[in-house]
């Protein structure tokens, strides 16, 4: 009996082969936690397979973990992008668990490019306390020591809002995100966090020939992210996670790219070392083709 995984792999491969000639990746920043003002192009579907891992545990007796997540990002219009996240986590010496899902929406209120381009972000999270993808780190540090069996039972319904500010300065992208999060499942007050990043492509001119490893396909930068405190724990900065992380992106082909980032915890409430990796595959014109398949325009 063929295994369902094999069938899914064949289907995915079919999409990749058939879509290869008609889809593309445009301009994407190499960040993992920071958003810039470039939304997904209308009708495009982006599949991103990512993981956040800590090869060594935190200083509070947490063990090493890997937290994979799948991100489906779709450009609804030129000013609205929506995303769905599915995430999990596995720890050394513990179990692997599904940690929940998130849905987020980004809106770009100004149509034209400006010196600073604002984007509004709203997210709903249905996750549990075992989550470790660390897309954002508001409030205090995670509960480092709790085993998955215990932490995965603690559900959290959270809403989150971000103000994204982003600028293009010559060939540099500079982005600042400020976030506020509220856990609707228990009284934790409002938690605040930030993420800032700067990046640029390694080469600004495109060569005439197809090349896979040339500098024009690479971009690099750095991002810093962490907590700004909460209304319950205060804003003194004590007990908050803080990270700094170089980021590198390689556009492998016209429709796929790979990102990599080693992150370094800056205090005792952070994981000392985080490793982030992602593979992204973009299907351009997905919405239009899906509509055509069903007889629409």
């Amino acid at each position: 009996m063929p295994r369902p995984k094999f069938a899914f792999f064949v289907i995915f491969l079919a999409i990749a082969l058939c879509a290869g000639s008609s889809i593309a990746v445009a301009q994407e920043s190499p960040y993992f936690t920071t958003y810039d003002h470039h939304l997904e192009e209308p009708g495009n579907l982006e599949l991103e397979f990512s993981s956040t891992s800590a090869p060594v545990g935190g200083t509070r007796a947490d063990s090493a973990f890997v937290a994979p997540y799948l991100e489906l990002e779709y450009g609804v219009t030129g000013w609205w992008t929506t995303e769905l996240y599915l995430e999990g986590q596995g720890r050394v010496g513990d179990s692997a668990v599904f940690t929940g899902w998130r849905i987020e929406n980004r809106f770009r209120p100004l149509k034209r490019e400006h010196w600073i381009n604002p984007v509004l972000y709203f997210e709903y999270e249905n996750i549990n306390e075992a989550t470790r993808i660390l897309k954002e780190t508001p409030g205090g540090p995670p509960d480092f020591g709790a085993p998955n069996a215990e932490s995965s039972r603690a559900r959290a319904h959270e809403i989150e809002a971000k103000l994204i500010l982003s600028s293009q300065v010559h060939n540099w992208n500079i982005a600042e995100n400020f976030l506020a999060e509220k856990n609707l499942s228990r009284s934790e007050g409002f938690e605040f966090g930030y993420s800032v990043g700067a990046s640029r492509p390694l080469s600004t001119l495109a060569s005439g020939s197809d090349c896979r490893f040339c500098a024009e396909n690479m971009s690099a930068g750095v991002e810093a992210y962490g907590s700004l405190g909460s209304t319950v724990l205060g804003f003194t900065g004590r007990g908050n996670s803080q990270y700094i992380a170089p980021v590198v992106q390689w556009q492998v082909s016209s429709n796929s790219r790979v990102k990599f980032s080693p992150g370094f915890g800056l205090n005792d409430h952070s994981y000392p070392f985080l490793l982030r990796f992602s593979y992204t595959y973009e299907i351009r014109g997905f919405g239009r083709k899906l509509a055509a398949l069903w007889g629409g325009r």
Binding site: E41, P42, P201, T204, L205
Partner: peptide
């Protein structure tokens, strides 16, 4: 539906 390509290098 024409996206901005400001993220691409000027050159």
């Amino acid at each position: 539906k024409m996206p901005s390509f400001s993220g691409a290098p000027d050159a």
